[in-house]
Nucleic acid binder design. Sequence first.
DNA 1: TAGTGGTCTAGACCACGTG
DNA 2: ACGTGGTCTAGACCACTAA
Lengths: 237, 237
Amino acid sequence: MVSKYLAIYNEIMSKIENGRIECNTKLPSENDLMREYNVSRDTIRKALNLLEQNGYIQKIKGKGSFVLDINKFDFLVSGLTSFKELSEKIGVKSNTIVKELELIRPDKFLMNQLKVSKDDVIWKVVRVREIGDKKIILDKDFLNKKFVPLLTRDICENSIFEYIENDLGLKISFAKKEITVQQATEEDKNYLDLENYNVIVVVKNYIYLDDMSLFQYTESRHRPDRFKFVDFARRNC
Amino acid sequence: MVSKYLAIYNEIMSKIENGRIECNTKLPSENDLMREYNVSRDTIRKALNLLEQNGYIQKIKGKGSFVLDINKFDFLVSGLTSFKELSEKIGVKSNTIVKELELIRPDKFLMNQLKVSKDDVIWKVVRVREIGDKKIILDKDFLNKKFVPLLTRDICENSIFEYIENDLGLKISFAKKEITVQQATEEDKNYLDLENYNVIVVVKNYIYLDDMSLFQYTESRHRPDRFKFVDFARRNC
DNA sequence: TAGTGGTCTAGACCACGTG
DNA sequence: ACGTGGTCTAGACCACTAA
């Protein structure tokens, strides 16, 4: 069961994304929307607040809610979108090659990153992402077997994310992301079409479940010229 | 006048930051907090939602609200924090050198970025940021004179941000940030201590006011080994 | 003055987790 | 059975914008 305010959020959001509500126009007032959807004002406000947080609209006191045009062409790499969701959204031909898929014991680095002990068993997945025939991204995922008992080549070629959320029913709630630039390693050079670049953009992802348990650590290594991170931020309070 | 929920948010937030509320402990329940602060449940919930959005707590249905330890040591470069706020927060000795400060007419690139016409007048500010005696960051700011009539060397050495918010009373509401990696230019090499790096991390910032007008475009060019971007993201809905 | 969004309240019912 | 957070309602007052 989807809540009312989420349903309203999704409806307005897709109208904005499809252009059925034009940019820089004014949304109906909260009172109008109340009547339109037959809900209370609070429910409308929850939906509008979500739209505002995610950069779709800007509310101005005394005036109304206005549609922004920021999300239009820039795909936001921010948030928790997966590679599959992303490449589908921007409609670019892409391909995933699974290089490694195995169960390992964590070394010191991993014990620290994943906060596990040496007796835990960890899935290690190494994948190369091809975008337009070039090997651009090297993804290294580490998942605690406690949460994900089984992983197959098929799942990894499709989307680990989808498998976890849909099939396993685990709820991902938040992530911490860290972006740095490092010297390219031999592994990077072997697996990717790095051309003459000797540095690589490293995106570290720490992914947490609903119950606050850290269950996945991911390192995404991007060829620098093909990397772009877009973020939408609101000034706090 | 600060709203009640913001006051409560700030109080709990600073308790968490100071460690007066320990990590991984449970906050009082919403009902307890209602009584503690003598407000309605909705007001408490607004405060807690803000804390959750900003990564301070995680709410779990049926259990309670738990304090996260993510913000502890990582300074978040995400959001809209300015260089001055940031360097004060992490307590590193830093210095700003103003290289250029002048009024210009926009060229094609700027007209596009700032969405202004060729008759507008634009402040151009170029600053070098020293961190621990090394020139690490090159900041190029472009501000529409329509919004900021006067800029001085003093203001630029201190914080343009503070001046705009405190002295001019303009309200910054949101920003779009874009991170890419580019070849270092001659200007980068001249102004910065780049050592042997020939690439540079470029952070483009589009800053908007309360009324949705784009009033500042900023390019922050970082030496790659000293760049780190940390982001906290919640899975949408 | 009328309309807008921002805040706050009091009360209701639900779904989830624990004992 | 109980306490927790999640949703929804109806009504109130305020501050801001516009005509």
